[in-house]
Write a protein that binds this DNA or RNA. Structure first.
Lengths: 157, 157
DNA sequence: AGTGAAAGACATTTAAA
DNA sequence: TTTAAATGTCTTTCACT
């Protein structure tokens, strides 16, 4: 992960559709070099994929919430089932596995407040693993879509 | 937002680097049609950009947390300053503006637990707007990177 | 709104340093 | 690892439906 790799990762985070030619031009290297670097980063799992960022409201999702969930005392396998099931529900944008006051935090985005209530009552509350949950409405959200590498001890690492 | 648009949005969320030709082939339309649809979706703000998904650990970020922040009684302008400043700190992946027990929830990702503590004590706690905060370690995370449109009343909307 | 053909731009491979 | 050249594919425009 040298400076060239760091630049590639930065540029592709901010625009995944950059042509390889343009990427190479901005890096000051040959296109084939850029191509090989991108492939290596992908092979090493640094770059995990490319996605379009879509406006949630344009998808008809006008209500967002963070839901802190406490699970009951169950076996690990039940936690994993919960995570896999709930994490792939279409209403769930992100599922966080956390410690502290809660076990799971869900970021959900649905059509409106009514649908949010329906989600909480009909879908979440009926899961046998759920003991309690607490909901915070989300009124705004800022994503840092370009994340820089953080080094342990200076730029030499 | 007809079914063709919905398919485009789905396909580009799952792979932003799909060639326009391949996109058109999967949609069953001509490349020029696919191109115009994608441009219209971009113009209308449905597609907001394209990004590479990068492994946080590959960026040297091995510790993640959700930090619930309560702000003091300040003017709106100070809240906005806080949001803009903190939301663009490199440690912050996402900033949520919420209601309920807290005013702000931060998803932060840093090198290790030591750096997390330093972030909380040296950077967050020293902000004048911050009254209290509470930290939950994040041990796992599942993103739903392909979000479908949710319709109010059936597929006809 | 959708299409097909044409021109130019591009990705990708290869051989070599 | 990086490069330049070459091939085949792709994006994009435009006249037409």
């Amino acid at each position: 992960m040298d400076e060239l790799d760091a630049s590639i990762v930065r540029l592709l985070q901010s625009d995944a559709r950059l042509s390889n030619r343009e990427l190479a031009r901005r890096l000051g290297v040959a296109p084939s070099t850029a191509l090989e670097r991108v492939r290596a980063l992908t092979r090493r799992g640094v770059i995990r994929g490319y996605g379009a960022h879509v406006d949630l409201k344009a998808l008809g999702r006008h209500a967002e919430a963070l839901v802190s969930v406490q699970l009951g005392r169950h076996q690990r396998s039940m936690y994993e089932t919960f995570r896999e099931t709930v994490g792939s529900w279409p209403e769930v944008v992100t599922l966080f596995v956390v410690s502290g006051g809660s076990d799971i935090v869900l970021h959900v985005a649905v059509q409106d407040v009514e649908q949010l209530h329906a989600f909480l009552v009909d879908r979440l509350a009926t899961r046998p693993e759920v003991a309690r949950f607490q909901t915070s409405m989300v009124f705004g959200r800022d994503h840092n879509r370009v994340l820089e590498p953080l080094d342990g001890e200076g730029p030499g690492a």
